[in-house]
């Protein structure tokens, strides 16, 4: 590595620390940071181009220092700058070496599957059920019941309590949907979708 490059590398060698306070933050590998940095640079460049192409409102004879694209453009430059710093740091930490992709903290077994199982009912409820004619309490009951069933299925099956699980989940779902509708709509006069 050239001396100038070494100097710059020493500037941005921030140690990677694993922090997971209250579910926040899990350190990424240098390779993941490298890829993320590329995404940030592309995003920043897109913001910069978008700002550059914004109308300068010359027809309205506005002050040139108040053009709408000024601040977004500067922010785009800032994102590209920080993205480049991250890219350089990830590269200096060996992102492109075989060890650069080794994960310091791997996902727990079954985490990705559970994530998909949790996300799917949320999306169906939020995008498909809400505001499409079904009363809120019914949509809410459907969502809560199905999510509880999905999440508790393995333990209920192992314990041979599937029927009991269905009944419990349905009761909880109906109570949750009914109570939330009652409290928000009737007591606190909040409009529900």
């Amino acid at each position: 590595m050239r001396p100038a490059a070494e100097l710059i590398v020493s500037f941005f060698q921030v140690p990677i620390v694993h922090s997971d306070s209250a579910g926040e933050g899990r350190a990424a590998t240098p390779r993941a940071d490298f890829i993320a940095a590329l995404v940030w640079i592309v995003f920043g460049a897109a913001v910069l181009i978008g700002s550059w192409r914004m109308d300068r409102l010359e027809s309205q004879d506005i002050n040139p220092y108040t053009i709408p694209g000024l601040v977004p453009g500067l922010l785009g430059i800032a994102v590209v700058f920080f993205g480049l710093l991250m890219l350089f740091r990830a590269w200096s930490q060996g992102a492109l070496t075989p060890a650069g992709g080794a994960d310091g903290r791997e996902a727990k077994p079954g985490e990705h599957r559970r994530f998909a199982l949790v996300l799917l009912p949320c999306l169906i409820f939020g995008v498909g059920l809400l505001g499409h004619g079904l009363p809120f309490w019914a949509a809410a009951a459907l969502y809560v019941t199905s999510t509880i069933l999905i999440l508790q299925y393995p333990e209920r099956k192992a314990a041979g309590q599937l029927a009991r699980g269905v009944v419990a989940a349905t009761v909880i779902g109906l109570c949750a949907g009914g109570l939330i509708t009652l409290v928000f709509q009737e007591f606190f006069l909040v409009r529900l979708p």
Binding site: F125, G126, V144, T147, L151, A176, G177, I180, R191
Partner: peptide, 27 residues
């Protein structure tokens, strides 16, 4: 958690919607 969190998500959806009554806010 499997009982509590779906209810929290319900409240979150209502919370997102209620401030302006826009489905866009839920999305």
């Amino acid at each position: 958690r499997s009982v509590l969190m779906p209810i929290i998500f319900l409240l979150a959806s209502v919370g997102a919607y209620a401030s302006a009554s826009r489905l866009f806010d839920v999305y």
